[in-house]
Design a protein around this nucleic acid. Structure first.
Length: 364
DNA sequence: AACGCGGGGAG
DNA sequence: CTCCCAGCGTT
């Protein structure tokens, strides 16, 4: 008589075997041979990488990961760092609330946990910036706990493996349960990383390489339909256009007038050049009012930038002033140190439009 | 449950 | 162009 085999457990074994042979080599990762010898990654490294990787590609994260570890080798170093320095180091990576929460989380770990990360999902999830995914990922990867890790990659793999018709995000609880059933007690961290590597390299959004997939024998989407049509997703809304004006002032020595944005909301806590509010239509009065001080402002073209939920078109104005105005809340930043400021990409674009030589190519 | 929140690479 | 990326916090 045929021995009954658990499909999920068998699939997990094949996934781990594939991971042993085809895993990616990443800066924060312990290689499978070492992991099997019981070597575990530094929770600080795993946490830092996971926060940076939220909605962000591996390639974009790598240089920032190295920069942060150089500046702040231990979580206690990050906890005692100046928040403004953290924002400067994060500039360009996006989703800046992550940087604010990163700092708060480091402070909480240092203050409330003696500088040691909690080793359970519940303990981790109580910290700022750590949600379902990151808590499970750190728990599994850094503490070898049997946590169900569900990110965008795993959602795609699971949705195809089980041909889940429920659209995202409604399908997440169902998917999480299936991942939990599949996650092995042995090497749960490598299993989680293997599922994510599979989603990133084989079970891709477009043209998945099903012939190379270790799970192709189990995949219902491959068997019944077109894997590429999974996961099902709710229709997304279109992006409105917003417009505004930005003012780039150069002092007699080339210094640029900057100011700080509000702590919360869009680009919260980051640095900017003065400008109008960003609205659905141009308001001439606003364009006058938003000037930080009286000067011979001259138009120098427009720049476009796409945010998550709207597209922005900024009219850029520049002025060369003989005397530094000191009446406002801003400051005059020397051209040489402009690159090191907490300037989001849209602001760098605006400054570069007014002062083409402001940023050297290849830096940062 | 829906929305706000960056930036960049792949196809 | 469109899609989507090791999602989280707020409402």
């Amino acid at each position: 008589m045929m021995q009954h085999t658990d499909n999920a457990a068998d699939a997990a074994r094949r996934l781990l075997s594939w991971y042993d042979r085809h895993h990616r080599d990443l800066p924060w990762r312990i290689s499978p041979p070492m992991a099997r010898d019981g070597v575990v990654a530094d929770p600080y490294h795993i946490w830092l990488s996971e926060v940076m990787l939220q909605q962000t590609t591996v390639q974009a994260v790598k240089p920032y990961f190295h920069k942060f570890l150089t500046l702040w080798p231990k979580v206690t170093d990050l906890a005692s760092a100046d928040t403004e320095e953290v924002m400067k180091a994060w500039a360009g990576l996006g989703y800046y609330a992550r940087a604010r929460n990163l700092k708060k989380c480091a402070e909480a770990v240092a203050r409330d946990h003696g500088g040691v990360f909690p080793d359970t999902e519940e303990g981790l999830k109580a910290l700022p910036g750590i949600g379902d995914y990151t808590a499970a990922a750190v728990s599994a990867i850094a503490f070898n706990r049997q946590s169900a890790v569900l990110d965008g990659n795993v959602e795609r793999v699971i949705s195809r493996l089980y041909a889940i018709e429920t659209p995202l995000p409604s399908a997440k609880p169902e998917m999480r349960a299936l991942v939990a059933r599949m996650t092995p007690a042995d090497r749960p961290g490598d299993f989680a990383q293997g599922m994510m590597d599979l989603g990133a390299t084989i079970c891709t959004p477009k043209r998945p390489a099903c012939a190379l997939c270790p799970l192709n024998a189990d995949c219902l989407a491959l068997k019944m339909a077109d894997p590429e049509t999974f996961p099902r997703k709710a229709a997304k809304k279109d992006k409105p256009l917003r417009v505004g004006a930005a003012f780039v002032a150069s002092g007699p020595d080339g210094a640029v007038y900057l100011r700080k944005r509000a702590e919360t909301g869009l680009l919260g806590g980051m640095t900017e050049v003065p400008g109008t509010a960003w609205t659905s239509r141009i308001d001439g009065d606003n364009t006058i009012e938003a000037q930080p001080f009286a000067a011979a402002w001259e138009p120098c073209g427009t720049i476009t930038h796409v945010f998550t939920h709207f597209e922005l078109r900024l009219s850029v104005y520049r002025a060369n002033v003989a005397i530094r105005d000191k009446s406002g809340n801003g400051w005059w930043e020397p051209l040489a140190s402009l690159e090191a400021q907490a300037l989001p990409t849209v602001m760098k674009k605006a400054i570069a439009q007014a002062i083409p030589h402001a940023f050297k190519a290849g830096t940062n």
